[in-house]
Each structure stands twice: as structure tokens, then as C-alpha cells.
Computed example of a mutant assay.
Amino acid sequence: MKIDLIDVFPGRSLGGNPLAVVHGAEGLDEAAMLRLTRWLGFSETTFLLPPTDPQADYRVQIFFPAGELPFAGHPTLGSAYAWLAAGGVPKSAGTVVQECGIGLVDVQTEGATAPARRLAFAAPALTRSGPLDEAERAEAIRLAGVAPEAVVEAVHVANGPKWQLLRLRSAADVLAARPAPEAPLGTDIGLAAPGEAGSGIDWELRAFFANQHGSLTEDPVTGSFNAGVAVHLFGTGLVDGSYTAAQGRMVGAEGRIFVSRDESGVIWIGGDCAMISQGGALTAFA
């Protein structure tokens, strides 16, 4: 087995979300995958496997420290990048087809070349949408630590992770949020608001999830949340064409996400990937 370390969605060197990608993971069971994920300590670690669907180029299992995820965004881009960097050739030119817990996900491969390469995944359909009820809204506001008067709307944007979106008045409101230290496992809450004038950023985001210890953790850059937000923003007419989002400032990151919708209506969540370490030997562990 080999392991790559990849920076996903960086707006500067080492400014994105780190990802570990394990190649040739057939010999690992899920318990071993989870132990390695926890030991590494990244938001997610992925494990590349042969596909079971004939349309797919590879299959991936995605783990975060509390368990397995059916889909996640920065692991999708990073896994596709690692597979390509290891010599993978997609069945369809220009598109990698990833098999994961939610099914097949297309990843566009046309972009900048090494050492950084821009990829984009097709945003999956929402598995839950619509407004939060009163109790859900109040609890999301409490856990995210935002001023209630700053909330413009509160909606579900689940797409694997059970994301709840609090859309706020301004980027300043997003950056001022002070999340609670603890939250129930399964908590996925994110904030979004229009970017500051003149910043070159159209939307400012933050995202929080509960880890296996019950702590509410801020993610540096979150592809699945950006995908859920994009589906909602395009679906409600709040955006059109393309936009650039930023995430991670409050945890020392500088993430950049490039979002667009093509003529067929597919929403693409794009970002750069940079190889930090490639092909390290992963020795067997009990």
C-alpha cells in the first residue's frame, strides 16, 4: 500500500484542507481504515479500491474520525487527483468517474497541470432540503454561535452529510460566529454570506461538524457543504453563472472554491489540488 498527502482547495501553498489517500487498500477492513484515519487526524482519509460498477474508474471509501461517509467533497477531488497522479487513465476522456457511498460522481479533469491541478466534481442532488423547523433553527443558531438577527434563512442542504445552512447577512457575521465547544455526533452546520465588497470573494463560508469525542470542530475547506450551498443558491436564484467562495480564515486556512453551472444545469465544485507527498510506503499495522 502507498499513501499520498494532498492539499485540496488551497488559495495559497498549504492553505487548503489536507487529505491522505491510501492506494491499494484491498487488504484493510473498515476497522483498520478507521484506526488509520484517527491516527492521521485529518478531517478525512480515503481508501482507493477496484470499482464494482463497470462505469466507474475506481471506488473510494471515505472516513472521518467518527466513521465512514457516503460522500465528501475535498476527498472526492483529492482522491481523483491521487488516482490520476498514480497513472490512472479514465475510461472517458476528461472525466473521472468515482464510485462511493452515494453512487457515481463525475470529476472533470481539465485544468492546471502539476504541481497543482484544478479539478471539479458534479454537485450531487440534495437528499434533504427545505427550511429547518423552529427547534432545528434555534439549535443550529446556538451551536454555530451566531446572532439570531443575523440569520436570513435556515435550510437543509444535506447531500450525504446532513448539512444545515444558516445564510447570514454578511461575511462579517460569518467570521464573528463563535461555535459551541460540544455538539451531538452527526451535527453538520455551515454558514454562508455574500463576500466583503472589493475582496474578490463572492461568498464567505464556514462549516462545523461534531467529532467522535463530541467536540464541534471547524473544517478548513468543505467540498460537500459548498456543493449543498451551491445547489441551494442556484435553485433559489441567488446566484447565476459562476462564483468564487472562500473558507477557512478562522482556522488559518485560505481555501478557494470555484463554482459554476454549465448549460445542461450541472453544478460543478472546483478547486486546486497539490501533491505534498507521493507514494510513501504504508506498512502493515494490526
Rank of each mutant, 00 (worst) to 15 (best):
A171H: 06
R169E: 10
T217A: 00
A193G: 07
V251Q: 13
F208V: 00
G190D: 05
E196Y: 02
I201K: 04
L205R: 06
V229Y: 09
A192H: 06
H213M: 03
L185S: 13
M250C: 15
L233A: 14
W203D: 08
M250D: 14
A230V: 00
G200V: 01
E204F: 11
H232T: 11
G214N: 04
E254S: 11
Q247N: 10
A227I: 02
P194H: 04
V221K: 01
R178W: 06
A172G: 00
D173W: 11
A253I: 10
A246G: 14
L175A: 14
N226Y: 03
A180Q: 12
E254F: 12
G241E: 13
R169Y: 04
L185R: 14
R178C: 06
R167Q: 13
E204R: 14
G200E: 02
V231Q: 09
G241L: 07
S224R: 01
D188C: 14
T217P: 01
A207H: 04
G241I: 11
D188V: 05
P220W: 01
H213W: 12
D240E: 14
V239Y: 07
S242N: 02
S224P: 00
E254H: 14
A183N: 10
L185D: 12
L175M: 14
Y243Q: 05
A210K: 01
A171I: 05
P184V: 10
F208E: 07
S170N: 09
G198S: 05
N226Q: 06
D173I: 11
R249E: 07
E254Q: 13
A180L: 08
L168I: 01
P220T: 09
A172M: 02
V251E: 13
A230Y: 01
V174L: 05
V239P: 08
G248S: 10
P181Y: 07
R178I: 03
L205Y: 10
V221C: 08
Q247S: 13
N211V: 05
V174Y: 11
E204T: 15
G252K: 13
P220G: 02
V174K: 07
A197L: 09
R169V: 04
D173C: 12
G195R: 03
T244N: 09
Q247T: 12
I201R: 04
S224V: 06
A171K: 05
A192L: 13
D240M: 03
A183I: 10
S215Q: 15
H232S: 11
L168K: 02
V251C: 15
G255M: 02
R169M: 00
F208M: 00
E196W: 04
Y243E: 09
A192S: 14
